[in-house]
Structure formats: structure tokens, C-alpha cells
Amino acid sequence: MPPRQALPIAINLTTMAGAKGLIFAQYTTNLLDFLPLCRGVMPCVVVDFEIAQRIASYWSWVKGNAVVKVSPAMTVVGKGVLSPRVASFSSRGPSMLFPSILKPDIAAPGVSILAADRNSYVFKSGTSMACPHVSAVTALLKSVHPGWSPAMIKSAIVSTASVTDHFGMPIQAEVVPRKLADPFDFGGGHIDPERAVDPGLVYDVDAREYNKFFNCTLGYLDGCESYYLNLNLPSIAVPDLKDKVVLQRTVTNVGPAEATYHLVVEAPAGIDVFVEPSVINFTQSGSKSAKFMVRFTARQRVQGGYTFGSLTWSDGGTRSVRIPIAVRTVIQDFVADTS
């Protein structure tokens, strides 16, 4: 049972049993939201399994005659905090209904956010806290670039997001146990407003393409699988790679008119990725849009799980436009690797 479900149950059971205190062993997860349940009832302490083992060893050594000292929780600020990281309650991919469209799109601050509540302020967590951050960044981008479409704004946010923390280390995700985050945890990464203002390139989508997408969801169009793969989103998801898949994307230059972008490919494990062209040149008199083709080829014939990678267009300076990739190899449809 995940810690966020287990802790409230443990508090309730120990309270009913008349316990004098609770030491709760868990995988490293933010559970501060639940500790107020102990207020006025008993002291509650959360520890990781390593510390829990030391406590259990001490208990065994003193044969039950243990001495316990409970001190206030320690507050750490600044560089000593592992941040950002993906919360355990954050929604995870893949998308059940549309696995060819990578979800989530982006991650934003949503844990213990100081929020207005009537005539006061409280700390709250959840999508209700992350959504205002993204909405505010969207409004700022629209004010700077009033001519940008919603798709361009979304692309700028997703493709400039950060996948590293403030130490330059990969962002971690709180699951059981904690792991390095992947696109199913944070999409493009953690939102970075300063970089999103000047992305250099964006993946735009004509509004009529969304109408086709809507008709596909209703079953009004044929060939929707290929359409999903080629929808010009700032991400790529291939849920059923049996041998080879070819798809297309288009980038639009919203930076300097004279620019050259080189491609950096991070191929998903077990997948060969070929992109043509791998260099895009924009000129003052030329087109502001450029198409490129991506081919994925499976190197192993297995009924496997998802592996992840990315495509990054870089101008060699400050602009780096990265989109996440998720690919799953399969041998047969409707068969899962459940052994």
C-alpha cells in the first residue's frame, strides 16, 4: 500500500488502540499533509526504512526497555532541499484512452503551496495548486507574444522545461520507491518560464487539426492511429512498435530570422532513431517552418515496456528545444508482459 494511503490508516488504528505514539516507516515520500491528524492525540514520526531498521535493532537489543525522545521536525531551506521533484500523487502516464499522445505535458509546483483561503492563507497540495502556476505562465507568454496560438504557447512551455534540479542532477519522482523521473512522470519536465519566453522553435497546430482529432475520438474518421502519431505535438509516443514506424513533425522559427539548429537525439533503449534532416537552416528570405521525418526501428523483438528518450534542436547558444519520446515494443496486440 502506498505511504499516502497507509499513514492515515496507521494513525487511525494506533489511536483506536490507545497508543502513546507512532513511528511510521516508509519509502521517502512527502507526508506532511497527514501529520496534523496526530495533533492533540499523540506524537507521530515518519522515518525511512533504514532508520526504522536501526530503531528496531535498538528495540530488540534493549529487550523492550527503550527510551524515546521526540523532538520537533527539522526545517531545511535553500540548497539543502531536493527540489523540484515529482509528487507521489501527481498523475502519471501513459494516457489510457489515447496512448499515442504522451501525457502528462508538463510539471509545475504543486506541493505545500501557500494559497489564499477565504480570509487567510493555508498550505495546499495538488493539481489545484500546479494549475495556477501553468495558467500564469501561459498568460505571461500571451502578453509577450499576443500573436501566438495556444499550441505555440503549449509548445514553448513543454519544449523548454527543465529535466534537472538546481544541482544539475536528474529530477526525481516520488513513487515506491523513489526513482529518476521520466516523461510519464513530468512530460517535458519542470516548467521554466524564463526559457519559455524565447524558445526559438515551436510546434504549432492548426485548429482544424484538433477538429480531426475530435472526430477521431468519436470514431468518425478512419486511419486515426497514423493521424495521432503525426499530430504536430511537442512530444512523441509510440505505444505499439512492432518493427518500424515513420512519423513527421514541423517546427516554426519564432527566434532570429537567421538561425541554424542542430539535432541531438537521445534514443530510447532498444530503439534506433533516424531523423532527416538533422540540421535546419533558417534565412531572412526563406520559410519560417521546416519539416523533419523521424523513423523508429526496434532492435529487439520483445513484448516489452516503455523506454524513453528525446529530440533536441539546439542553435548552439541559449536556445534548446527538447521534446520527450516514449516508445513501447510489442510482438502481438492485446498481449501484455505480465510474467
Rank of each mutant, 00 (worst) to 15 (best):
M1W: 11
P2W: 04
R4V: 14
R4C: 11
Q5S: 15
L7E: 07
P8F: 06
P8N: 08
I9T: 14
T14P: 04
T15A: 10
M16W: 07
A17G: 03
G18A: 11
K20I: 09
I23F: 14
I23L: 12
I23W: 00
F24H: 05
F24Y: 15
Y27I: 12
Y27E: 15
N30W: 09
L31C: 11
L32M: 08
D33N: 11
D33W: 12
F34C: 03
L37D: 09
G40Q: 05
G40E: 06
C44I: 09
V46K: 00
V47F: 06
V47I: 15
V47G: 08
I51C: 04
R54Q: 14
R54K: 06
I55N: 01
Y58Q: 08
W59L: 13
K63A: 13
K63E: 14
G64H: 01
N65L: 08
V67W: 05
S71V: 15
S71T: 12
P72T: 01
P72H: 03
A73T: 08
A73W: 00
G78I: 03
S83W: 07
R85E: 13
R85G: 04
S88R: 10
R92V: 10
S95N: 14
P99R: 03
I101F: 10
L102A: 02
L102I: 06
I106Q: 00
A108P: 02
A108Y: 02
P109S: 08
A115E: 05
A116T: 03
V122S: 04
S125P: 01
M129N: 02
P132Q: 01
S135H: 03
A139V: 09
V144A: 11
S149E: 07
A156F: 01
T160Q: 05
D165L: 06
I171D: 03
K179Y: 09
A181D: 04
P183L: 07
F184T: 04
F186S: 01
G187D: 07
G187R: 00
G188S: 02
I191R: 02
I191A: 10
P199E: 12
A207H: 02
A207V: 15
F213M: 15
F213E: 06
N215I: 04
D222S: 14
E225W: 13
S226L: 13
Y227C: 13
N230L: 05
N232G: 11
N232D: 14
L233R: 11
L233A: 08
P234E: 06
S235R: 11
I236H: 06
L241C: 08
K244R: 15
V245I: 15
N253A: 02
V254P: 07
G255C: 05
A257I: 07
A257P: 12
A259S: 13
A259N: 09
T260N: 04
Y261H: 00
Y261G: 02
H262I: 10
P268N: 01
D272Q: 07
V273H: 00
E276S: 14
V279G: 05
I280Y: 03
I280P: 02
K288C: 04
K291Q: 13
F296K: 00
A298D: 07
Q300S: 12
F308S: 02
S314A: 05
S314C: 09
D315Y: 04
T318K: 12
T318A: 14
S320H: 02
R322Q: 11
P324R: 00
I325T: 05
Q332H: 12
F334V: 12
F334K: 10
D337E: 08
